[in-house]
């Protein structure tokens, strides 16, 4: 965030750009995972807890093994476990997936704080960044264009998932289960199993998104790491109308909104620091209000999804 310091006011757009990419990375992973979960007709509101759990697990394993990539793997597995837990409980009859999500939000954060206590002080090896600013002589520009490799992985996942949903058998099964569980059953598919796997996948992605918070920037684990990115990402999926490529755009938009406060602070505008920090939530709410319709279902909404029924 020092990017803006020496460039004066020109540093603000630069810092917002750099911040947009950085802040958007966890949004991107969580929302891409949640698209798959929601396409199967189920919503996981517990991704806030999964995100924090991923941040903790990734950091702890990276510290213990000295390998950030093993950290990413651990974060993904931790997320997968929480996702499967959600999917498993929801597989029982008459369970409200919203309530299970709230419970997992509390459980995931609590567990992460409990297990993560010993890892607050030590320094784990971070994930590498790719230097796209090599052409510039300005150190600020170079710093801003140090882009973490996880962002590129997320960038690649978006079109891949979009294509997979449309053109593969798995994608078709997933969408069918999300549209009508009865139809899926008639076709010999098990909605419960598909949803379990889809929620597991969503959890895995959210876990990986979480480890960006601890292994990417700023490269530390503490209990204040995430404050609502998980739930914002869930709302973002609604805004993106369940399309992976739209999630990418929405994530960048939200990332930019989130980067605005710190960017302004770096040039000395700190009067409304907390309100600017709340910008992504305000933006999310505004977008939800604009995107929702009281009388009909949203375009692209899976028919079985409880929150849009």
């Amino acid at each position: 965030m020092n990017a803006g310091a020496a460039l004066g006011w020109w540093g603000v757009p630069l810092a917002v750009f750099a911040g947009a990419i950085r802040v958007s990375t966890p949004f991107l992973f969580v929302s891409l995972g949640e698209v798959i979960t929601e396409k199967s007709g189920r919503i996981n509101l517990g991704l806030e807890g999964t995100l924090v759990m991923g941040a903790m697990a990734g950091y702890a394993i990276a510290y213990l093994t000295l390998s950030p990539w093993l950290g990413v793997l651990a974060a993904g597995l931790a997320g997968l476990a929480l996702g499967l837990l959600h999917g498993g409980i929801c597989a029982l009859p008459r369970v409200n997936d919203t309530a299970v999500g709230i419970a997992l939000m509390l459980f995931g954060t609590g567990l992460a704080f409990y297990l993560g206590k010993p890892f607050i002080a030590p320094k784990a090896p971070g994930l590498p960044a790719i230097d796209l600013g090599f052409w510039s002589a300005s150190p600020q520009v170079r710093a801003a264009l140090q882009i973490n490799v996880l962002f590129f992985i997320g960038l690649a996942c978006a079109p891949l998932l979009g294509w997979g949903l449309r053109h593969t058998g798995i994608g078709l099964t997933l969408r069918m289960v999300g549209e009508s569980a009865d139809a899926a059953r008639a076709m010999g598919r098990s909605p419960v199993r598909v949803r379990l796997l889809a929620t597991g996948f969503g959890g895995c992605m959210a876990g990986i998104g979480g480890c960006f918070l601890s292994l990417g920037y700023p490269g530390s684990w503490n209990e204040g790491l995430s404050s609502g990115q998980g739930i914002t990402a869930v709302a973002l999926v609604i805004f993106a109308r369940w399309r992976p490529m739209a999630c990418l755009g929405a994530s960048l938009l939200f990332g930019g909104a989130g980067a605005l406060g710190p960017a302004l602070q770096s040039v000395g505008v700190s009067g409304f620091y907390h309100l600017f920090n709340a910008a992504p939530y305000i933006l999310t709410l505004a977008i939800l209000i604009l995107a929702s319709r009281p009388d009909r279902m949203l375009g692209g909404a899976p028919g079985e999804l409880s929150i849009t029924k």
């Binding site: 709230i102 954060t109 704080f113």
Partner: peptide, 20 residues
Amino acid sequence: DATIQVLRGLLFLSLLTVEA
């Protein structure tokens, strides 16, 4: 200090499971 949070989370999950 998060011990109580874990306990509360477990309680919440158990409740929903038992209800089902």
